[in-house]
Simulated assay, not measured.
Amino acid sequence: MAAWGQRLAGVRGVLLDISGVLFDGAEGSGVPIAGSVEAVARLKRSRLKVRFCTNESQKSLGDLVELLQQLGFDISEGEVTAPAPATCLILKERGLRPYLLISDGIRSEFDQIDTSNPNCVVIADAGESFSYQNMNKAFQVLMELENPVLISLGKGRYYKETSGLMLDVGAYVKALEYACGIEAEVVGKPSPEYFKSALQEMGLEAHQAQ
C-alpha cells in the first residue's frame, strides 16, 4: 500500500479509456465491465479530476455518451476527449478538405467540413466501409497530391467487442502508408499531443495525472 501511496502522491486527476475499460460493446449496445460504473462514481466523489479519453470512431460523441449514460455511467459530452471533434479542429485550422474513409456513425461530426476537391485523407475505424473501392480511392487521392496528408483517428491494431476481437484502423493505415510512402498523422491514442489536449482540458500537467 505504501508503494501505491507514493505513486499517487501529487496526482490530481485521472484519465480513463472507455471501450474495453468501462464497457465491452457492439454497434448500438454494450455491457459494463464489472465494477466500472461504481469505480467512475467513486472517482467523481473524490478530490480527483476525471476525464475520459477515447479512440472511439464508429459512434459520434453524442451517441457514445448517450450509450454510456444508458449503461449507468455518470458522464457528459464535455468530459470526453474524442478524435473526431479534435480532427475537425485540425482540418479547419489548416484549410484541409478531406476524403473521408470513416464509419457512417461519425459522419455527422464532419457536417461543417468542406469535402470538395480533397487535399487530404481522414481515416477511422470504418467497419464495413473498408472495401477495396474505398481504400483505393483514398490511395488515389493521396498519390495525386504533391504533399499528401493522411490523418488517422487512432492507430490501434485491434479492439474487443462482445463477439470477440475486431481488426482496428491501424492495419488499414499501414497499408496506405506503405503504398504511398508516407506516415500518417495520428489524432487519438497513442499520440502524445492527444493526451496533452486532454490534460489541458483538465488544467493539469502530465505528472499530475494517471
Rank of each mutant, 00 (worst) to 15 (best):
S197D: 09
K189T: 01
L101F: 07
D111Q: 11
K174L: 04
A86K: 12
L165E: 00
Q140D: 10
F110D: 04
L150G: 04
L145D: 02
L61V: 14
S129D: 14
D24H: 15
E38H: 05
F139Y: 14
I102R: 01
A175E: 01
S131W: 03
L100K: 06
E183H: 12
E201N: 12
S29N: 06
A198I: 15
P190K: 02
A34T: 08
A126Y: 07
L165G: 05
P85S: 02
G170C: 12
G72E: 09
R107F: 10
A2I: 13
S60T: 07
Y159K: 01
R97P: 00
I102G: 01
V173W: 00
Y159T: 13
L100G: 00
E79T: 11
V186W: 00
Y159Q: 02
E193N: 15
S108I: 08
A3F: 15
C180E: 07
E77I: 09
L22K: 05
L67D: 14
G13T: 11
G10W: 13
V40F: 04
D114A: 03
T87S: 05
A34P: 00
K160S: 13
F139K: 11
I182H: 08
S29Y: 14
S76L: 13
S129W: 02
S131F: 14
K196W: 03
A209W: 11
K92Y: 06
S60Q: 03
E128W: 05
S152L: 00
V141M: 04
M166H: 10
N136W: 14
C88V: 14
R157K: 14
R97T: 13
E109A: 07
P192V: 08
L61R: 12
D104W: 05
L204I: 11
Q58I: 11
E146Q: 15
V14G: 09
V173E: 04
R47F: 09
S163H: 11
A206I: 11
A179P: 06
A41W: 05
M143G: 13
L142M: 01
G181C: 11
A82K: 03
R7K: 14
L64T: 07
A126K: 08
E109Q: 15
S163M: 06
M143P: 00
Y178I: 06
A179C: 02
L145E: 12
V169P: 00
I113W: 07
Y194C: 08
R47W: 12
Q6H: 12
G28V: 05
V14C: 08
L8T: 15
G28Y: 09
A126R: 01
K196M: 08
G105K: 10
T162P: 07
N147Q: 11
M202F: 06
E77T: 15
V11M: 12
G78M: 06
K189Q: 04
S76N: 14
D74E: 13
V40Y: 08
R94D: 03
V65M: 01
L153I: 06
R157T: 05
A9C: 15
T115I: 10
I75P: 10
P190T: 07
K59N: 13
S116D: 07
K92T: 12
G78P: 12
R42I: 10
L22R: 05
E161W: 03
Y99F: 14
D104R: 13
